[in-house]
């Protein structure tokens, strides 16, 4: 009994330590982000890495999600003769929810993990100590460009995902379910408000920050050699995914 309580206590301690560190690193990133020198080259390199390199996986995910959404809702809505609203449902779901969350999760798997592994390797091979010894703050040099890339690129990727998701939905509805294309398009845009778009993009920016800060932080606090790097990588993906899903709920509640 005591053992179990002990384990529980330990679990909570590590959990709070993790969260505390996370916010500490977020604040430090904010503090250093306004400080010179601005590593513009490094910023661009990370933006390319987060943005451009994620295009294929985002395209596939968004496209197929739009197609499945369309297929599923068409089936359901047909029973109540509401096929006309499939377009609006797909568009709303993509813009407000699916596109930002899926992009966030996919980029976490692709980039968040890679950042944890990269910075973790730098930690265990003393490259981070070397950075500091060369009078370069690691948060300034490593965190800031990556977090800025996440913050700016995720909304762009989400925008791209929105377009492809809506297009995928239309493709299925018109070509497979023989919906009237003119009516479908009309319905897609009829009920959309600018807030549907912006709330999704705000979510995406938050998710981009979450996944980059998590990846960098997990890497930065890596201990224990190659094995430790593996552990950090896994933990970064799990922690960032959970945080994205949790914060999604609260953001949705706030942004409505």
């Amino acid at each position: 009994m005591n053992g179990i309580l002990d384990r529980f206590g330990q679990l909570f301690l590590t959990l709070f330590e993790d969260i505390g560190r996370w916010f500490q690193m977020l604040f430090r990133t904010g503090f250093w982000s306004v400080r010179r020198p601005y590593e513009v080259n490094e910023w661009v390199r990370q933006m390319v890495r987060v943005g451009v390199d994620s295009i294929p996986v985002v395209a596939l995910t968004a496209m197929f999600t739009g197609m499945v959404m369309s297929l599923q809702t068409f089936n359901g809505f047909q029973r109540v003769h509401a096929e006309n609203f499939v377009g609006s449902v797909v568009a709303l779901a993509m813009l407000r929810e699916l596109s930002p969350v899926l992009v966030g999760l996919m980029v976490t798997g692709r980039i968040g993990s890679a950042m944890a592994a990269e910075i973790g390797t730098m930690r265990v091979t003393e490259q981070i100590d070397a950075l500091e010894a060369l009078a370069t703050n690691p948060v300034h040099y490593l965190f800031v460009p990556r977090v800025i890339a996440g913050l700016t690129m995720l909304p762009l990727l989400t925008l791209f995902g929105n377009a492809l998701g809506v297009y995928g939905g239309r493709l299925v509805a018109v070509n497979l379910m023989h919906a009237n294309p003119v009516l479908y398009d009309q319905n897609t845009y009829q009920f959309l408000e600018i807030n549907d778009l912006t709330s999704g993009l705000i979510k995406a920016a938050v998710f981009g920050t979450i996944l980059t800060v998590t990846g960098c932080t997990k890497g930065y606090f890596t201990t224990g050699g190659a094995e430790g790097v593996g552990r950090s990588t896994t933990e970064a993906v799990v922690m960032a995914s959970l945080m994205i899903l949790l914060s999604d709920f609260f953001l949705t509640k706030m942004l409505f």
Binding site: M122, T125, E126, Q127, D129, A130, L131, A133
Partner: peptide, 10 residues
């Protein structure tokens, strides 16, 4: 400062 394994940025 020079580090044990060099710690060059790879």
């Amino acid at each position: 400062m020079s580090f044990q394994e060099g710690a060059l940025f790879d």
